[in-house]
Amino acid sequence: MITIDGSMGEGGGQVIRSAVALSLVTGTPVRLQNIRAGRSKPGVLRQHHTALAAAATISNGTLDGGAVGDTSAEFSPGRVVPGDYEFAVGSAGSTTLVFQTILPALLLVDRVSTITLSGGTHNPWAPPVDYLAQVFAPLLERMGGRIEIETERYGFAPAGGGQWRATVHPLRSWKELQLHERGDVHTRRATILIANLPGGRAVAERERRVLVRRLNWRECDVTVQDVPNSAGPGNVILCTVESDSVTEMGVAFGQLGVRAESVARAAANQVRAYLTHDAPVGEHLADQLMLPLTLAGKGSFVTGRLSRHATTNRDVLAMFDVAPLRIESYGARTQRVFVG
């Protein structure tokens, strides 16, 4: 039994997800305390509860506590069983975060699983499903894991109601990821998604103007896409930068009361921040890659300065009996994360 203080580091939901993911993989029970102590609404939210319950479901494990509002939970995993599962997150909570909790365990079994998730697909503070498909999945594949993602319906917060399916193939053996140089950027494109938005075209045009100006991209690099299959209204900007070694993505969400220009500026700023250094891995991707890297037990990647989120994540991983992640400076403004 490993006891994890949820108030450690930035004290958010990532602590729960990483702990439960590793608990599933290592078969080690975990006791979580002070869950999300650092947040304005402390305790388990609906998406965290779904993640905990999903972990219990796929492993026939037991969950004690961990109900919505609880500040502690005890999770004991059983044996992970591949198969077809469906999980729903109420209140348009992020389905991608639920998926990430159970993904590593499902990679390490001997049969294919399909996971159907419903709820939010595009939530602030969470990677959108496009990011999983376009950025994370290709890198995972380079590490030996294969997932396929199919989006059936978009679910923008706050309405949610999205649905997507992930097929997780068994990972035969981990491959070593070496991601040190970005190489040349050869493709830049931005996709502006709009759904059920009155005057959505105009909003998208205003966003396009700002993107083009601030990123110095061409008009044709920015495409506007109407999302027909969405319950509620939504607006998301996805800025993709493809280089020789990696595809990265900056994301910004339109929200009521936030001007279109501000949304576009936020998206552009993420891209600019990524391009200020030569590291191939951006801030959020670094966070995503840590768990697979530690499970692989080999490999390394280079990123900018690690966020507090990322270092908290590393601290949680270090509590389990897995290959420890190490961090070293790599150039002036970049760091290397590696195992070994």
């Binding site: 609404k41 305790g43 388990v44 939210l45 609906r46 998406q47 509860h49 919505v68 509002g69 109420g90 209140s91 348009a92 909570g93 706050p158 309405a159 759904a195 059920n196 009155p198 969405s230 319950a231 509620g232 209204p233 009521l256």
Partner: peptide, 22 residues
């Protein structure tokens, strides 16, 4: 009415839409 309804605060729906209350 319409997709716009999701941006409006509707108490009965909102009651069931809280991320920390089921």
């Amino acid at each position: 009415a319409g997709a716009e309804r999701w941006t409006r605060w509707r108490p009965t729906v909102a009651l069931c839409q809280q991320d920390d209350l089921v």
